[in-house]
Design a binder for these strands. Structure first.
Lengths: 240, 240
DNA sequence: TATGGTTGTCTAGATTAATAGACATTTCGG
DNA sequence: CCGAAATGTCTATTAATCTAGACAACCATA
């Protein structure tokens, strides 16, 4: 069931298991989480430990406990984020949430690291524009991203984004009307302190990191981005 | 830095951070992890806590400590697993590891749940073949998967796989020479007890779950699979 | 209104995780 | 060969987590 002495507190393991059961629809019949005593028996722990787990889920806004009645499930769905040749943040999520926005957190002109230079086919040290974005759906943080653009080719990227609020429109304002996803690498890991704060995650949460390169129609890389999604709020859907 | 009272032990948070630094190449210059005292200062914890983290990494076979000299990095790479229209497990990983194998853990004929029926365009309750596989590269567990096939169309899937050791060849033996990836959904979460055991993960580890549907050339779904990858051993590369 | 089932709260104790310090052992370079 | 720097081992203490039990508060329903 749950394991001890593994560096993850029992209440957190149990919270993760319950969260998964909720999103799998295991409790859809009643719309409620089983009683604390039943969960304690199921996981072989004390009721107080289950209560810690449920408190953490309540903190995330996933469940709501009512004295005398039980613990109701408030929210269970993950946003589905499509990844395809024409991946666009706002288009892909439209219809799944009412209020979508991408906010510019920071921007800076920096020399390309080897990683960035490789991705954009520049030389290390070439000037790049870095944009840090935070994307939200209905007020909840969905992803934070760091993007790099060639400062020579897209010198006004930050200004355009600040005005237009969209990468696609910012490219258009720079004279690039179309671009396609050239490659996407996906890894998953624990969120770091910065991501916890930006996405308002409960500590120990998981992020899915997508390292993507977008290219113009001639195949030249125009954007290298690393987007960190809150793993418990989204799923990525690959369209091949 | 690291956070307290979040349900994840400090040594585990630190182990995760160091593992990430290793795989990012942060210590490539020396090939060694920084001294324990330096790490303790960096993370703001006691040296003993760092030692617990390093012991866990040594247990995974990632590092090797030598008294008087320091802690050397043994292994850092993640396997890159491609996902495209023609995703094939063995082809995709060939060249990245010497010894690749997929082992049949279990198989059973079961009635389709709603989830499986939806994916395979069957009716709930229709007979399905379920295959549980464990894939390894160089003796290390990479992924475990559960696949469903229509029992009517592919009645001998389990027998074929047991003999041939490959989904592609098992389809061929059933008269299906070609198939393509129709859809892939990707989520990330903490590994459950079963996955921890199968993949020999250190508890609390992360898995990336890919829910995939393969279809024949006519577009009819032939396989629904849920593959759980050890997140610290692989990255998924999307080829659009 | 009485009863059973549920969550909320409190106290106490046991177990595990983390800190603190001291010192041994090994390696490497001057 | 010495000393600095690194890991290995030990003891003791403090802090956090989990268990155990009791009982209060609340809700639904017979």
């Amino acid at each position: 069931m749950v394991e001890r002495q593994i560096g993850v507190a029992l209440w957190r393991q149990i919270a993760d298991r319950i969260r998964l059961s909720i999103s799998n629809g295991a409790y859809d019949e009643t719309g409620m989480v089983p009683p604390e005593t039943a969960l304690a028996a199921e996981f072989g722990v004390n009721r107080h430990t289950v209560r810690s787990a449920l408190a953490s889920l309540a903190d995330e806004g996933l469940v709501n406990a009512f004295q005398g009645r039980g613990t109701m499930i408030v929210r269970k769905e993950r946003l589905s984020f499509p990844i395809s040749k024409r991946t666009r943040f706002s288009q892909g999520l439209s219809g799944q949430a009412r209020d979508l926005q991408a906010r510019l957190l920071d921007h800076e002109q920096v020399p390309a690291t080897r990683e960035v230079a490789d991705a954009l086919k520049l030389s290390p040290g070439d000037a790049c524009i870095r944009l840090d974005l935070l994307s939200s759906a209905d007020g909840r943080g969905v992803s934070c991203s760091t993007s790099f653009f060639s400062a020579e080719r897209f010198p006004k990227m930050a200004e355009h984004f600040a005005r237009l609020g969209s990468i696609t429109r910012s490219f258009a304002a720079s004279g690039l009307d179309d671009y396609v996803r050239a490659s996407t690498d996906i890894v998953a890991r624990h969120a770091d302190a910065n991501e916890l704060a930006l996405l308002k995650l409960s500590p120990g949460a998981i992020v899915i990191e997508a390292q993507a390169i977008n290219a113009d129609p001639q195949g030249r890389p125009v954007q290298y981005s690393r987007t960190r999604f809150a793993a418990d709020r989204v799923k990525l859907t690959i369209e091949t």
